[in-house]
């Protein structure tokens, strides 16, 4: 029991502690000690509500997936690369002399079971220019995505892009 819940807790505490060091911008002994106290207080105030037995889960399910460490560390680089390439494409669309858009709202069914991971995937799709998550059909793992321009590849091009993001997300969680 302790083993199953320890890993997300350790991850959250580490992330919070890093954010504490970043906001204060110092690494003296008093700051680190105060940081430990504050991180403990914040986790004490939010863990039971938002992470352990999360309030917005109607039936049983793991609210918080266990992440693999190595993909988690390499994840930001791939994500930023994806971001830059998509941004470049949309910038070209915005600056071309005549705007000829074919927007569409399509449904993409995902394989990801864990709801938090699905939400992270939805946020990632929103962050990538060119695709925007409008709604999620959480019980059946479907995402409704507004695509800016279907382009010449049609629906399959957008779905392929989503699949790539989804594949990486699947490698991230256990």
């Amino acid at each position: 029991m302790g083993n199953s819940s320890l890993k997300p807790l350790a991850l959250l505490a580490t992330a919070l502690f890093c954010v504490w060091i970043a906001t204060t911008g110092r690494a003296d002994i008093p700051f680190l000690l105060t940081g430990i106290v504050v991180v403990f207080a914040v986790i004490r105030a939010t863990w039971a509500t938002f992470f352990a037995g999360a309030h917005d889960f109607s039936h049983r399910g793991r609210p918080w997936p266990a992440f693999r460490l190595l993909p988690l560390l390499s994840y930001p680089f791939f994500f930023l690369l994806e971001l830059v390439s998509a941004t470049w494409q949309v910038a070209l669309v915005a600056l071309q002399p005549r705007i000829d858009l074919h927007p569409a709202i399509i449904r993409v069914d995902s394989r990801i079971q864990n709801r938090t991971a699905l939400v992270l995937l939805a946020n990632e799709i929103t962050l990538t220019p060119g695709t925007l998550t409008i709604d999620a059909d959480i019980p059946r793992q479907g995402l409704y995505i507004h695509a800016l321009d279907l382009g010449k590849d049609g629906i399959d091009g957008v779905k392929g892009q989503i699949r790539r993001l989804e594949h990486r997300m699947e490698g991230l969680i256990r």
């Binding site: 971001l83 830059v84 998509a86 941004t87 470049w88 949309v90 910038a91 915005a94 705007i99 858009l101 927007p103 929103t126 962050l127 990538t128 220019p129 060119g130 925007l132 409008i134 507004h146 800016l148």
Partner: peptide, 16 residues
């Protein structure tokens, strides 16, 4: 042309 496509452009202001 409309709100949804403008949101795409707005996201680009952030990510790019």
């Amino acid at each position: 042309p409309d709100v949804y496509t403008r949101l795409h452009a707005s996201t680009k202001a952030l990510s790019g």
